[in-house]
Design a protein around this nucleic acid. Structure first.
Length: 923
RNA sequence: GCCUCGGUGGUGAAAUUGGUAGACACGUCGGAUUCAAAAUCCGAUGCCCCUAGGGCGUGCGGGUUCAAGUCCCGCCUGAGGCACCA
């Protein structure tokens, strides 16, 4: 009987749906396993062949784990809030909810036809009020929390207030935007507004005036990870710096924990490295430089090289820094103001593009080097960033190349304090172990390492500052001036923000007449009628960013219909955390950091049981497009095959890859493709038109998009799944190329035929021969090892070898085939179900048990042992496994070939590597 | 500039982690079957040389080792990340 994949796959997909085969419940009798895919943003274009790569891999692993007896949670949902739907809405007036709904339906249809085993009863959508109730709830928790650096965790804000009331700021170590010192008395005497103002600086979700990435084209603020090279990641619009009042999350207070806990995670090195860089820890010292002529004014700097303090010949303060204003002297004011104005109008992008260009202005003030009391000028320059460290530096031109360039440009002195380079030529930045300090009083003669320690000691002793750590990671800006996102559960009373109560959540997104900002520049929510609380207080008009909804979705899947809590204790304790998370690297510094932070916060307050959400993470590579080209002869409607194009003057034209097969153009289809090609003529090679090709992003405009639908229609879902995995390791990015899919298709045909003799279903109860058993167990072993290593490509290769072997033996033994069906089930579930049923099982293959590998069939009775004589001659011998060293020597030397080679030569030594190789070293 | 990961046939890729490089698959060539084609099956297929046989081969140049795609040093090159971060 023919392998009729179309009807067979339809039949099983229907059965799985009808029987809710993949629905899971808490089951304390079985171990849990949690496999999660990064949920997709349902775009209007549907899935192309690149998208399901990770989903197929996780589905294979899920099905494998089920067969191994685990209770596997494998859910799917949609990250449904976002910019594209909103922009589409602006253009068409269609409500984003409507388009989103439509897109989701399409995604679901496509996912189903690939044969995914998701538990759809647990589906979540971030735009569903029942879901975003808990996003809002988490935000409320963050509003009412502060970060205790002593206990290194978030705590309820009420406990901070208690602390203030009993002892003011004494003994308090808290993450805070300001440096506060007050007594309990002083606290008690403050009015309500002032108290709230102070508390804002401690809250984990807080409102603050901050420099933000403002994107005028999108009309919204963006987070750091949403900006690349001064352009927005979505759309590529210019981004500028602007001071705005925004909601922020104090993620920086978690910097150290986010860094430390990376170690315990089973993630790829490159991903961990990216997060490390993003967090950007640097050790150094905070030093205060008094300003000449002022008792109060001090310049705080951060430096990683306190050892070079005697080489500081000037100071630089960031132009945007408030300090700058206080430092400008009357006679310098006009010049400095002019400079500040110039900096202000320079966009972030221009600033980045011209990093070589040196600019700055002298403020007129001088600082005193606290270690040698030398007077040094204070400058302002845009190479110092307001947002990092304290926004001011001590410039050591001898040992920092930016300071060096600045000093050279403005003719400032350069002092060498570390020997080893020529500071007149360039800054000497090496931390050579033998380099000694000079011109540095008590540091002279020390190495850099010693000098850093010594300088820090001296600074702390004299209370000039302290050794400290700085992070590049900044607090996350959490407001977006957009419509299609979660509303903030915040209202304002006398300008002071308050949170809604949990019982009043969710705060649903209101209807608006247009999805644009208001005339007065308020976000779209400003258009909503009566955007107020019951008591008439104004509600917050911004919405939350994309990462809000995806930060705790993995917890929601554990208990998606719970209306009382994000997740019940029971469900959380059973499912714990994600054992395997699969998704792309593009989320390395976005979602994967936010999500870890969000989870740690919930953990601190006892809302979840695990400190880290994702134990193991596998990054699937991107599938690129493989575009095809036809070459039109200039000025004619004639197309020349790629091999002959050098003889003509041609223009390459993208041609739809779906009318090209193995680079050969379907000429009739091409003529029908577009009106203008109807009468096209062709110059062929070997009777065929061969197209050129190039690797590009998979995109509609390159006509290189391949949809899974077409492939599945032609070859079936099982072939598609197999082929996607067979393409190469999942972590690797690679272009899609449909030629080659025949290989996996043929494999499934051959597998099917093992169960048939002509048209007759034929499996025998005969006992398997040792040879057959060996083939089976070798395959089981290799496949299982490969699955555990996510090497699905080689697992499939092994199946191919196995089928070839069994076909050659004309083997139809039930004993063998039944086990193979189960082993293949994770890869080709539809075919396996069908064959499993034909083998007489009434239950689905999902409930089968993964066959046990019997090692005894794997042990070879003999092993191949290559003999190498001085690396020149190789003889391969078959030797028994248990042969002794002496016997091996004897056998080797008795070989005719070896004898021949050794004639007249003397053996110097014989090296036997157990079970592997024998080497004879000849004199 | 800094960090990370790669570079193996015509193509996608394997290689038990230092042990016969190129498994498996695509493609190509040859054959069988067929009136013919498709499908299917069998065989060949790293490169070079005149075959027997030999020589060369994992980006390039060195090194360690009986043995290197794998380890070490120095380059070249591709992809990704970070980037006036003090």
């Amino acid at each position: 009987m023919k392998y009729d994949f179309l009807s067979l796959e339809k039949k099983w997909q229907q059965k799985w749906r009808d029987n809710q085969t993949y629905k899971v419940e808490i089951d304390n009798s079985r171990p849990k396993y949690y496999v999660l895919d990064m949920f997709p943003y349902p775009s209007g274009a549907g899935l192309h062949v690149g998208h399901p790569l990770g989903y197929i891999a996780s589905d294979i692993y899920t099905r494998y784990k089920r067969l191994k007896g685990f209770n596997v949670l494998h859910p799917m949902g949609y990250d449904a809030f976002g910019l594209p739907a909103e922009q589409y809405a602006i253009q068409t007036g269609q409500h984003p909810a409507v388009t989103t709904e439509k897109n989701i339906a399409r995604y679901r249809e496509q996912l189903d036809q690939i044969g995914m085993s998701f538990d759809w009863s647990r589906e979540v959508r971030t735009c569903d009020p029942k879901y975003y109730k808990w996003t809002q709830w988490a935000f409320v928790q963050m509003f009412h929390a502060w970060y205790d650096q002593k206990e290194n965790k978030a705590r309820p804000i009420s406990e901070l207030i208690e602390h203030f009331e009993s002892q003011g700021t004494q003994d308090l170590q808290a993450a805070c935007s300001e440096d506060y010192h007050f007594s309990s008395e002083e606290w008690k005497n403050l009015d309500k507004t002032k108290k709230e103002e102070i508390l804002q600086n401690f809250r984990i979700a807080y409102l603050a005036d901050t420099m933000v990435n403002w994107c005028p084209a999108l009309g919204t603020v963006l987070a750091n990870d949403e900006v690349k090279e001064g352009l927005s990641v979505r759309g590529g619009h210019p981004v500028e710096q602007k001071k705005m009042k925004q909601w922020c999350l104090r993620i920086s207070s978690y910097a150290q924990r986010l860094l430390d806990d990376l170690e315990q995670l089973d993630w790829s090195d490159s991903l961990k490295e990216m997060q490390k860089n993003w967090i950007g820890r640097s050790e150094g010292a905070q030093i205060f430089f008094p300003v000449e002529g002022s008792d109060e004014l001090k310049i705080e700097v951060f430096t990683t090289r306190p050892d070079t303090i005697f080489g500081a010949t000037f100071m630089v303060v960031a132009p945007e820094s408030e300090l700058t204003q206080q430092l400008i002297t009357a006679d310098q004011r006009p010049k400095v103001e002019e400079y500040l104005e110039k900096v202000k109008t320079k966009s972030e992008r221009d600033r980045m593009a011209n990093t070589k260009e040196v600019s700055g202005e002298f403020t007129g003030s001088y600082a005193i080097n606290p270690l040698n009391n030398k007077k040094i000028p204070i400058w302002t320059a845009d190479y110092v960033l307001a947002s990092y460290g304290s926004g001011a530096i001590m410039a050591v031109p001898g040992h920092d190349d930016r300071d060096w360039a600045f000093a050279k440009h403005f003719n400032l002195p350069i002092i060498e304090v570390v020997q080893g380079g020529n500071v007149e030529q360039e800054a000497y930045m090496d931390k050579d172990e033998n380099a000694k300090l000079v011109n540095s009083e008590f540091l002279n003669g020390l190495t850099v390492k010693e000098a850093i320690t010594k300088a820090n000691e001296e600074i702390e002793k004299n209370k000039l500052g302290k050794a400290t750590i700085n992070y590049r990671l900044r607090d996350a800006i959490f407001s977006r001036q957009r419509y299609w996102g979660e509303p903030f559960p915040i209202y304002y009373k006398d300008g002071v923000p308050h949170t809604l109560e949990t019982k009043d959540l969710p705060l649903e997104l209101p209807e608006v007449d247009a999805f644009l900002p208001t005339e007065t520049g308020e976000p779209p929510l400003g258009r909503a009628k009566n955007w107020k609380t019951k008591d008439g207080y104004e509600l917050e008009m911004s919405t939350m960013p994309g990462f809000a909804g995806s930060s705790a979705y993995y917890l929601r899947y554990m208990d998606p219909h719970n209306n009382e809590a994000l997740v019940s204790k029971e469900a959380n304790e059973y499912w714990q955390d994600v054992d395997l998370y699969i998704g792309g690297t593009e989320h390395a510094t976005g979602h994967l950091i936010y999500s870890r932070f969000w989870n740690k916060f919930l953990f601190d307050l006892g809302h979840t049981t695990k400190d880290e959400p994702f134990k193991k993470l596998v990054n699937q590579g991107m599938i690129q497009g493989r575009s095809n080209f036809v070459y039109r002869v200039k000025g004619k409607n004639t197309f020349v095959s790629v091999g002959l194009k050098k003889d003509y003057e041609v223009t390459p034209i993208h041609v739809d890859v779906n009318i090209v097969r193995n680079d050969t153009l379907d000429i009739e289809a091409f003529k029908a493709w577009r009106e203008e090609f109807k009468n096209a003529e062709f110059i062929l090679e070997d009777g065929k038109y061969i197209c050129g090709h190039a690797i590009e992003k998979m995109s509609k405009s390159f006509f290189n998009v391949v949809n899974p639908d077409q492939i599945i229609e032609e070859y079936g879902a099982d072939t598609f799944r197999l082929y996607e995995m067979f393409l190469g390791p999942i972590e690797q990015s690679k272009p899609w190329n449909t030629s080659g899919i025949e290989g996996t298709y043929r494999f499934l045909q051959k597998f099917w035929k093992l169960f048939y003799n002509e048209d007759q279903f034929l499996v025998t109860d005969e006992a398997a021969t040792p040879e057959e058993l060996k083939i089976l167990h070798k395959t089981l072993k290799k496949v299982e090892d490969d699955i555990q290593n996510f090497a699905f490509n080689t697992a499939i290769s092994q199946f191919m070898i196995c089928v070839n072997d069994l076909t050659a033996l004309k083997s139809h033994k039930k004993e063998i085939l039944e086990k193979l069906v189960v082993a293949l089930a994770p890869f080709a579930p539809h075919m396996s179900e069908e064959l499993w049923e034909k083998l007489g099982h009434s239950q689905t293959v999902t409930l089968a048990t993964y066959p046990k590998v019997e090692e005894k069939f794997l042990i070879e009775s003999t092993f191949k042992c290559p003999v190498s004589v001085n690396g020149k001659t190789r003889v391969v011998l078959e030797l028994p496994v248990d042969m002794s060293k002496e016997e091996i020597e004897k056998t080797v030397l008795a070989q005719e070939k070896v004898q021949k080679y050794l004639e007249g030569k003397q053996i110097k030594k014989i090296i036997i590597v157990p079970k592997k190789i024998v080497n004879l070293v000849v004199a």
